[in-house]
Design a protein around this nucleic acid. Structure first.
Length: 114
RNA sequence: GGAGUAAGUCAGAUAAUCGCUGGUAUUGAAGAAAUACGAGAGGAAAGUCCGGGCUCCACAGAGCAGGGUGCCAGCUAACGGCUGGUGGAGGUAACUCUAAGGAAAGUGCAACAGAAAGAUACCGCCUGAAAAGGUAAGGAUGGAAAGGCAGGGUAAGAGCCUACCAGAGAUAUGGAGACAUAUCUGCUAUGUAAACCCCACCUGGAGCAACACUGGAAAAAGAACACAUGGGCUGCUCGUCAGUUCUUUUUCACAAAACGUGGCUUGAGGCAUAUGGCGACAUAUGUCCUAGAUAAAUGAUUAUCAAAUACAGAACCCGGCUUAUAGAUUUGCUCUAUAU
RNA sequence: GCGGGUAUAGUUCAAUGGUAGAAUGCGGUGCUUCCGACCCCGAGAUGUGGGUUCGAUUCCCAUUACCCGCU
């Protein structure tokens, strides 16, 4: 799993990418000329303390990792948690569900997969 | 058995599958990558309230200003920390708390009430015909009222005298000291220094986003040059150092705010034993190596253990303080009930 | 990571250690045929917990929330 690292890459995805959202997540994506996908996760400081934010990042990364094979390639993706999220209500199953929903909306899933 | 008090310890474990970040070894020309082995968040990692190391500024200068600390002795690299004691406060007790120098160097403040707020006594009491004088027992106020209270004494009164209590000074004894005890003198000096201040001691500034190293080109404009200007922490005054560059803009290229590499983890380190000390701690010997990331590493699923749930995530390092914290557990001591 | 600041009525701001005040908003009364404007009256607050002081918005300590700067 490759991650986005530069600030300029993040800004590029935010400005010129497509977005789709669910109750808890917003996903920005941009197609580029590449054979791999890159992912970044962003959690606002308003959601909680560092323990909470780290936990949410891990959940998102794990959910992405388990579903990575089902995706089309050549995208830069940024996963953002909404500020209205209640961290106590989230567990791994919910995050995975929401993430897949958003990715389908964005059209990144391969067509022949449910 | 109950209630309490003090000091600690732990902070889920084991197994399986998938996955993450360093290290070592092997393969590989190297890089990337792969395989194997082993390691991988805390008691507060937090708040940033103190202190120190380290780096740069002149290895760090002078004076004033400013800031901090404040019973005594010790410990420590240092401290506003810790240990042991002294005084005071609370508790039946075990024990706990305590910013605790100076108000007799000076200044300020003490609203309202009250005659009066450390000072010219309003009413009152006594002497006296009056004028005037002597007084502070009693009176209302107030947080605080001329040491308190009782007796003697007196014209009325008053430490004027006496006992007890409280405060001040002197002397003696004990103690390293804070201070304690005893005796004598004598009756005045209110409170506030977490008001200014005085005294004693300490204090240069900035911080790893510090700092060092490597890495492209071209052009234009401006400023200042030796008794001058700018810079070297903040306020001022001095002193001193370096000695020609500095600032801005544009174009191309670009990891480009170089988001690169180092600094970076072996350290006032941990553990065990012995010795010295009431103790904090010190010394000696042996032994161990235990995160180092940079959009930032510990996660997901399943099973078992009654249950798996608190506060919470290293970011240069260390010593403290403060604050948050589910549950489990050990030891010492105190009071109390019942039984023997 | 480092440095600094703020918190007072519903809102915007004042206040030498001595009764917390103003504007606006809110409620009521009057005026008006009714509403508005105007007049009168009223309620309403020192972020939280300790300490110093006779007395704390003010001084000291801790804590919570928010904001700003460095990069």
């Amino acid at each position: 799993m490759l991650t986005l690292k530069k600030s300029s890459e993040f800004q590029d995805v935010f400005k010129s990418g497509k977005w789709s959202s669910s109750d808890t997540l917003v996903i920005y994506s941009k197609k580029i000329n590449s054979e791999v996908n890159k992912v970044g996760v962003a959690v606002s400081k308003k959601i909680g303390k560092s323990v909470v934010r780290n936990r949410l990042k891990r959940l998102a990364r794990e959910a992405y990792r388990l579903n990575e094979e089902k995706l089309q390639k050549g995208f830069n993706i940024v996963i953002v948690y909404k500020n209205s999220v209640n961290p106590e209500e989230l567990n791994f199953e919910k995050v995975e569900k929401e993430l897949c929903k958003c990715l389908k909306k964005a059209g990144i899933f391969k067509e022949n997969v449910d």
